[in-house]
Design a binder for these strands. Sequence first.
DNA 1: CATTTACGTCAGTCTCGTTGACATATATGC
DNA 2: GCATATATGTCAACGAGACTGACGTAAATG
Lengths: 165, 165
Amino acid sequence: MVQHHTRANPLFLREEELRQAIELLFYAYRDFTGEPDAILTKYGFGRAHHRVIYFVGRNPGITVSQLLRILKITKQSLSRVLSQLVREEFVAQRTDSDDRRRRMLSLMPKGEELERLLTERQSRRIARAYREAGAEAVEGFRTVLRGIINEEDRRRVTLAGSGRR
Amino acid sequence: MVQHHTRANPLFLREEELRQAIELLFYAYRDFTGEPDAILTKYGFGRAHHRVIYFVGRNPGITVSQLLRILKITKQSLSRVLSQLVREEFVAQRTDSDDRRRRMLSLMPKGEELERLLTERQSRRIARAYREAGAEAVEGFRTVLRGIINEEDRRRVTLAGSGRR
DNA sequence: CATTTACGTCAGTCTCGTTGACATATATGC
DNA sequence: GCATATATGTCAACGAGACTGACGTAAATG
């Protein structure tokens, strides 16, 4: 697949290979977010709203501080978009009965609908790529991406899912 | 959180798998850009500067319009960061002798140095992930990422690298 | 010579990230 | 019960970086 005819210089090969990875990530993320971004604009929302809607939908009952740890942004940045989503009835807050300081977040019908719309687009893109690449490539894709993620957050992705070994 | 022990429903499994991909991409990109972002701050630059420096370094002599096509941002957005990079002598412009409307961009010594610094960090992260994952996984990673990229831009990544030159 | 292309710029807007200070409610350890 | 820590929200101010739309200039091109 990767026809490197320069076997003479392994260092060059390595750098070229790594630069390709950098570029693949850039282009893939650019296009991966491009479609949702366009949809969000119609709602007066941006990518930050998308992230909140996605992770709240994925983890119903998640608290603000848990969300902050995932997004790695400041309380202010989250607060702005979150309060907007609550105000416009995309997201609901209810007090945790165990610890009444906590606000448990969940999607309201409007939020669920938008979440589905956005996730559907992204899923379709991934599904197509997965289908074309085959199961073995998919495993490789997952493995490498996990390796790129900071160690402390790797568990976030594979614990929840089919990757139960 | 969400543990799926259901093997009964293949559709559900599929959705879970796709959501994991979405999250892998999110976390990987977040951490992939996190390190360079921190460095750039010290220079008074942002991620936009990084992208320009990277792609100019990678494609010496690239023109403004070519850069726009890669970054998919507007002329204004590019103009702001580019003129700053030129002013501060990270990037040089010289008129193309064939078509004197074009400005061919290249890195100046300061730009090359910063580019190396930033790319080094990202490369190290990728290299570690590649090493841990193995050659086969790397191929899968590349294949799936290429599939995620809009078709018209796929050639950007594999032609320039292993192909010519 | 008219049109198109490449590039730059001005003015204004918006999202979304930042810091730092402060307020409140609640939980928890002693 | 009190002191402290935690979870959350909010205010003010700021900066980066994206956008649109319009306009201007230089050069290439049909």
